[in-house]
């Protein structure tokens, strides 16, 4: 019997060349349109926000839990635990959820360090581990507390093995005291192993992921849950800079663009199916 890695942790995007489909002109056009929006709009909106445009953000109750935990941590001296999960950040499969988890961890670490709270972290990916070490060190340094940085509180639990990662995180909840745990990033169904342990030890948890199975587990065990795209938006709530708020507006603009593209695509395909447009019409996606 040959050793095969479990499939469950391959929830990232594969860059394997053999799987690449051919890209039609229509798809290329859409990709460029979305990329142009994603690159240009944050700067346009940031300019508008700096110029005084007021933005109403819908409330994210999970972040109220997080802010309350940060305030308590500064008073009690108990650390805030951060984890971006066990998703890959290297190789042929990269997980954008891990990136979102790392960016949020960076914002929370900065806020915690500024308030004098201590930080501990866990990850299930070697590259994330190094990134966490760097960002937490920088957070302490920027807050003027470089001497408080303790690299031995940043743990790596296995590398790309969600079972081992969940078991390690679960053990940390049992054996160490913490004010709250922020588990936002790439978590699979094994999230429940750690989340339930944290709940039983009455650790306030803020969880977030885009995986539907672990979202259900997070709703059952965490005090606050970030659902789907909220994990990408949360950092702008923690550090509401003009560029951060501009990114929230960019999400909405691209969503509107995608809905428009879907409707236009539906109309074009229907016109072709009814014979009004010829099969050779160049802008139609390859089917």
């Amino acid at each position: 019997m040959g050793y095969t890695q479990p499939n469950s942790y391959r929830f990232g995007y594969s860059f394997a060349a053999s799987e690449e489909p051919s890209v039609s002109l229509f798809e290329l056009l859409i990709a460029f349109l979305i990329l142009t929006f994603a690159i240009a709009l944050p700067f346009v909106y940031a300019h508008m926000v700096t110029g005084g445009r007021t933005i109403e953000r819908r409330p994210l109750p999970a972040l109220d839990e997080l802010n309350a935990a940060l305030a308590r941590a500064a008073e009690t001296g108990q650390p805030i635990h951060l984890s971006p999960g066990a998703g890959a950040l290297h190789g042929t499969a990269v997980d954008p959820e891990s990136l979102a988890g790392l960016v949020l961890a960076q914002r929370v670490a900065s806020a915690a360090a500024r308030r004098g709270a201590t930080i501990m972290a866990s990850s299930g990916d070697a590259v994330s581990h190094l990134a966490l070490r760097g960002m937490i060190r920088v957070a302490y340094r920027d807050a003027g507390y470089s001497e408080d940085y303790q690299p031995d509180t940043i743990h790596l639990y296995a590398d790309h093995d969600p079972h081992a990662f969940a078991a390690g995180l679960s053990n940390r909840y049992v054996s160490e005291t913490m004010e709250a745990s922020v588990t936002v990033g790439a978590f699979g169904e094994t999230y429940l192993l750690a989340g339930e342990q944290g709940r039983q030890h009455q650790i306030p948890q803020v969880a977030g992921t885009t995986n539907p199975i672990s979202l259900a587990a997070a709703i059952l065990t965490a005090n606050g849950t970030l659902l789907g795209e909220e994990i990408y938006a949360a950092e702008a709530y923690i550090a509401p800079t003009p560029l951060g708020i501009a990114r929230l507006l960019t999400h909405d603009a691209i969503r509107f663009l995608l809905i428009t593209i879907i409707v236009v695509g539906l109309i074009l395909v229907s016109l072709q199916d009814f014979g009004i447009l010829p099969d050779s019409f160049q802008l139609l996606p390859t089917r």
């Binding site: 994603a38 944050p42 954008p96 959820e97 994990i231 999400h251 969503r255």
Partner: peptide
């Protein structure tokens, strides 16, 4: 599920571009 995937994909695009 598709709504969740769309939202997550938009967030991933914007996050990736800024990185």
């Amino acid at each position: 599920l598709r709504g969740l995937a769309f939202g997550a994909a938009i967030g991933a695009i914007v996050a990736s571009v800024r990185i």
